[in-house]
Amino acid sequence: MIHVENLTKYYDHFCAVDQISFDISKGEVVGLLGPNGAGKTTTLKMLTGFFQPSAGQIRIKDLSIDDHPLEIKQMIGYLPESSPFYKGMLVYDYLEYVSRIRGVSDSDRHPRLKYLAELCGLKDIMHKAIGELSKGLNQRVGLAHAMMNDPEFLVLDEPTQGLDPNQIVEIRNIIRKIGKEKTILFSTHILSEAEATCDRIIIINKGKIVADGATQELKQSAGKETLIDISLLNAEFAAVEKELSAVAGVSKIKQISRTDDGILTVKASCRSETDLREPIYQKIKAAPWVLMEFRQETRTLENIFRDLTRHVSKEN
């Protein structure tokens, strides 16, 4: 449904988005993840037609955004970052204005506004000025604005930014409710949020895609690699490295610290289908070391995210 090819955006000489390509099919809920300044917002702004890409193609339902900007804008519901609406307007007036521009027919207008007020919980604030609303309510007005003409594709830029935990749960529930029927692309830098709401996650960093896959898949690939922290008394790092590297499946041993009272802490990275804790323990038992601590850490999405985004920044 959405096809993005080699999308690039330069701000003067700074490359904010660097040859990004991805496809989103109908009904997917996709999270665009990345640290601040990775190019998430720029990508979304190009998708919604607010920014002109420096290079590359965007096609939505086989329509190119250069040739059919109006049709595409009509198909996309967009919630910009921090929802900058007209502060002086009443919520009702604003939503009515949007419904007219979005071409909701006169007979459908009232039921549609009523339905959206219900869905987004705006019933009690329809008569208030937008400038008076709290951040969370403002965000809900934004959701109603984005869904006005029942668009097929929703683009939400950091929908939960700046909200308190209760509001975050509320907004997430609304997104999940809508996501059952719609295609949604939303950006966030909160991992647990993407994990909880998305079918698929695209991680970008420094304008490049560093990972793209179903949430489950990414989690599983993360699960295969485990880290084991071991603290030993009376041990030399060279000897420990030699012994433990001999265990099949251990890919790397790294010294973490060595305290004055002789406790050596190492981290063993393991890539194996089976549990390596037993063979490692047997090795330690056979050696003249005293085991002080032994802990396995399963890699979560959080680790992958940190690795991917930190790794690239080091390269640069």
Binding site: G49, K73, P80, P84, F85, V98, R102, G103
Partner: peptide, 10 residues
């Protein structure tokens, strides 16, 4: 910043 909203309307 509502300019962004205006431009993303059809």
């Amino acid at each position: 910043g509502s300019y962004e909203i205006l431009l993303t309307l059809p």
